[in-house]
Amino acid sequence: MSRAARAWSRDRRSPGKSVALHLTLIAASIVSVFPVAWLVLTSLKPRQAIESASVAPIDHPTLANYTQVLGETRFLTWAANSVVVSLVTAVLGVLLAATTGYAVSRFRFPGFRSVMWMLLITQMFPVAILIVPIYNLMAGLGLINQFPSLVIAYLTSTVPFCAWMMKGYFDTVPATIDEAGRVDGLTPFGTFWRLILPLAKPGLAVAAFYSFLTAWAEVAYATAFMTGDDKYTLAVGLSQFVGQHKAEWGLLTASSVLIAIPAAVVFLLVQRHLVTGLTAGATKA
């Protein structure tokens, strides 16, 4: 935006409007931050204060919930499980999908429409469609309560999704680069590997990160497949804290904070790229 345009619109806002604007945004920010802030506060409360209706922010701050989560529960095991499963899913998803993303971005070939349809439909699959057959197949292979079953289940949605997202990213890489590669005598694979892939690293990173997040936050497959508490992922493990018979809100809030803070920091750093990635096809037009 040019300096003139900037001055143009700021000058035109009356003080009353300015106040209204900021008040609205402050109210919206409070709504958006409050639940998270309350979570952090609650995690610092002693046990008896958590299950009382007091609105007092905090009386006797304590780290007891955190020491209990880290020392007396399997939180760290679950976190490691989540990281392993998500990481493998993300890496495999991107590796498998990269060339396809490129091919559907650049070439029109017989079967192109079917591939696009396939990518579109499969990434829309809700968990309810495949979970029963995949569960039964995994049970047949003896993979229930094993990480590979989860990775396989997650790949069903991340592979098409990554391909779709990377198509959007490759679309933004100018086709003249491909032509230059071809003129220099590179095969399509050579062009992809030597010229396009290095340029598309941010796109690959976003697709990988998004797959990581999907696997990280997945609940249904993890709940159904992982039956032993040494194999739980975080989403399953945490729901054990607030089961039907007891509700350990202290443990739940402390572990939520431990999960949410690193997640939020990384997320806020990359979110601009995420939105561009998801809407790439649209903004390009």
């Binding site: 920010s29 609650t42 607030v242």
Partner: peptide, 22 residues
């Protein structure tokens, strides 16, 4: 404002569901 308003997206959805339950 932008960072504050984006925060709910940054929290994993299963964590948010637990927060709201509380």
């Amino acid at each position: 404002y932008r960072v504050l308003l984006v925060l709910p997206w940054a929290v994993p959805s299963f964590v948010s569901a637990f927060i709201w339950r509380y």
